[in-house]
Nucleic acid binder design. Sequence first.
DNA 1: TCTATTGGTTGGAGCGCTCTAATGCTGTAG
DNA 2: CTACAGCATTAGAGCGCTCCAACCAATAGA
Lengths: 333, 333
Amino acid sequence: MVRPTMEDVALRAGVSRALVSLVMRGSPKVSELRRSAVLKAAEELGYSPHAMARSLASRTSTVLGVMVSDLHNAFFAEVVDGIDEVAREQGFDIIINTGGRSPARERRALESLLSFRPAGLILLSPVVPATAIGKAAEQLPVVLVARSSRVSTVDTVNDDGEQGARLAVDHLVSLGHKRIAHLDGGEGTQAGPRRRGYVAAMEAHGLVPQVVSSEYTDAAGARAIRSLIDDDALPTAILSCNDFNAVGAISALEDAGLRVPDDVSVVGYDNTSLAALRHVSLTTIDQPRAEFGRLAADALLQRVREERTEPVRHLLNPSLVVRSTTAPPGGSR
Amino acid sequence: MVRPTMEDVALRAGVSRALVSLVMRGSPKVSELRRSAVLKAAEELGYSPHAMARSLASRTSTVLGVMVSDLHNAFFAEVVDGIDEVAREQGFDIIINTGGRSPARERRALESLLSFRPAGLILLSPVVPATAIGKAAEQLPVVLVARSSRVSTVDTVNDDGEQGARLAVDHLVSLGHKRIAHLDGGEGTQAGPRRRGYVAAMEAHGLVPQVVSSEYTDAAGARAIRSLIDDDALPTAILSCNDFNAVGAISALEDAGLRVPDDVSVVGYDNTSLAALRHVSLTTIDQPRAEFGRLAADALLQRVREERTEPVRHLLNPSLVVRSTTAPPGGSR
DNA sequence: TCTATTGGTTGGAGCGCTCTAATGCTGTAG
DNA sequence: CTACAGCATTAGAGCGCTCCAACCAATAGA
């Protein structure tokens, strides 16, 4: 249960601790003779370097912290894939922590991540207040994904939510819908742009916006639909704040004996793997998720290497993915 | 960008570094006067303890490493919730790493986790060879979830896969099915017990088992169905190795113009949130996921505190959840 | 032959913290 | 008035590593 140290390896290989250190870091200024002796000793002892001691001594870190606000959402898994890809390429490791969509838990997660003194931090759709992010950004480079920021030391990677919402509304209008409600993401990040895009697009078409407060979960989507039904205010089409919400909405509609898309059309947002399932086959707005991750990691590593000081604001273009949950209104399929 | 150290706080508060250390660790043997002075100084400087230096000096860690083999699978998110709950209660933090279901990547993830010298390790459905796990277990307590082990220093938390498969077969047989194929999880962990349970249950009913090699992904499920159709060997019911696989199977069946459950019944395994969606509404086998996480964390912390040396083998009872993807055979719905 | 130069190797300080043992400082009993 | 607890506080060593400057051949140049 007690791991060998550099000292142990040095002793066994008959060299100094400093030499072992050089070998471990792949220094070219070590003779082949010594190198192999050290590697052999390390192998025999089952030695592997102590990352913490290393980063303490070198005052550098090869770790990127990633805070995932909600592990249940597959959206983030793909972003993490993108981050991981770039990080690994450049010799960095990532450690993940999750906030469970609760600001308090997320704050704790952030604190915990920070206590490892990583080289930088990527926050995926954080829900903590902007001040908490600003405070973190004073200590190390921070990149935000799916959330915007005005802080000049923080880079951001987002999709253009206004444009995405517009694409969805245009699609529904072109199908003939006039009464289109938006299930709003509430406090959720990116809910603002989507709502604004929705309202602007509706008005551009001369239609009346109908914003229903909801959240980024399937339960919330179902709840919103039930309240619409109770209020007798159900439109012919729904634009959900995300796919989860949309799937919840569809469940509630079906529970109420309504058919999708015959009676009500539903559009999601995010194009998660969920939406792509045949059985769901949700019309939705796609975001280049892995690209989000890659761009975020790139931006972060630029800051880590101090190659750049001006903020970067990636705004990627979303696209409409038409599947089977949208159709002309009035059961006229 | 440079964080203050204990020394800075001590200087500002006019006390020694050791005193600051005591305050930071909440020691009772500090006068109220000093304590508040230290806390004030720390607050003003924006100081927070350096977890790595702390764990290096104390030769202990309050971090639990969690390796998630596949972040895309929501199953693990719920297990992580359970782990997080217990860990937090007991003052431990968790750091997560992911292996992306590739043994090579997973090995790297393990290595990375280990380099932080966490107090213990929880591996969620790891795909690395048993020897790699054994090696890790020599260095720190290890708990396996959704994978078994014979190593006496490794605790495991599993569902009773044989029983789960039996539940599924019994259900299908009671509906009148005689030709039931199993889409096998292949190398995947827990695939063995599920397959054995399936075969045993089939034989107990006097039926001929039909095992089709597949994997724990939706793509693999779809592929397996296509190969069955190509071979003209499609049965009336399918028991998939997990929900993902089942959903892929359903997609492929629908692509081929077959209806579920009218033409073919499908049973999944795991009861992920995916299965619960109305639009999927998959009959499946439920595992108490959060309970897995809680038990795993409990077992690990017992080892960490050296309260126990004999291995623990949790085998939780799965249960059948009947939804809308199973019906009597022959379109006789 | 003597001094540079080069390339490999090493000792020692120090990263930010914890922990042990020792210190100073009350207050109380003898 | 001394002695001794008992408590709060501190100095100093050390955790496993990196990094710098110093060191030591061995070779090259003069």
